[in-house]
Design a protein around this nucleic acid. Sequence first.
DNA 1: TGTCTATCTGAACATCCGTTCAATTCAATC
DNA 2: GATTGAATTGAACGGATGTTCAGATAGACA
Lengths: 195, 195
Amino acid sequence: MARKTGSHADITGPAIKASALRLFARSGYAAVSMREIAGDVGVRAGALYLYTPDKQTLLFDLLREHMEHLLASWTAAKSGATPLERLETFVHFHVDYHFDRSDEVFLSYMELRNLSPDNFGRIEVMRRRYEAELEAILCDGDASGAFHLPDLRVTTRAMIAMLNGVLTWYREDGHLSRDSIRKMHWQMARGMVQA
Amino acid sequence: MARKTGSHADITGPAIKASALRLFARSGYAAVSMREIAGDVGVRAGALYLYTPDKQTLLFDLLREHMEHLLASWTAAKSGATPLERLETFVHFHVDYHFDRSDEVFLSYMELRNLSPDNFGRIEVMRRRYEAELEAILCDGDASGAFHLPDLRVTTRAMIAMLNGVLTWYREDGHLSRDSIRKMHWQMARGMVQA
DNA sequence: TGTCTATCTGAACATCCGTTCAATTCAATC
DNA sequence: GATTGAATTGAACGGATGTTCAGATAGACA
């Protein structure tokens, strides 16, 4: 096996994260062993510990990097003057993000309970920050009379739950284009807030 | 330990299912050991095998019984003449069911991937049957002009995803009454179908 | 009172788990 | 060609896992 000093690690490190992400998303954190991840990478289990201190940190780093990327992407994407425009931007962004990074998104809401309490707290802070972005849009729209919400927090969570639903089936319906799914969810979201 | 022939089994059997349900829902199927379940019941691990052939069947039976109960409950509850009334009944039923049996519902959509392929297929058939109940309501409403749906299947799944969202937070907001949550979700569901 | 039998224990089975580490490999450097 | 050091192996660690089963226990019945 070829080994170049200081360069092979640049391959193995990301490869481990990619394999762990895919396997965790497919079978669940608890059901995937370190040997299984190593085998997928093409390496022995011991080698993983050159790149992560333990399995728990491997999961945590995947979720943390995902949340950081999600927040940064939204910060770059957010736009719109009116609450309605801002909500449309959010819905499109959210659905698109789910298409592009389905494993990360799926993992981040399925494996929260396998994080240690400390790590859970850190991820939860970021998750709430993202949720607050939507909540702010809905809040402004409700205040301006553009939306009519039964309850701010409940609507925020219900809308995120609805949008996350794409995750469970989007692979099946190959005949629906991403753009049509995006538009449909925007129509339903607009209905939810009675705009 | 007192033991009455032919009667103690009537206690231990259901106790095992209750413990397994709660522990699986809390920590996940793969993360809960048979010894842990036995300890919760107040029995040794070996005794579990008088009531289930193996761990996999224990999970499957929990999900199967839940789905059978869900379908039977809906059959008993379904009512309404117009699509709008039928939809309202469905939304109220679904939200109420989630309140009353949150562990079962949570388990049934978190642990599907830990079922063997055969068992997964059996549960999936029942899950689709339930989904079809909502789809039929939406289909009739769309045909009669009462609803305006972008896509029948997408709307069905998006609505179930939204309603399932209650599971993730309903414990926190103790200040919201069940009735108010029910009404809010009905308002949002009605908006989603543009009724 | 003694027998029967449903119920449960306690110990064992093979196998897997996450993790550690001395020994090895080999590209890069001198 | 010899040396260096990053990258990886392979074997081992203690412990947990699902499952089995001969034997103990104790209520029910003769």
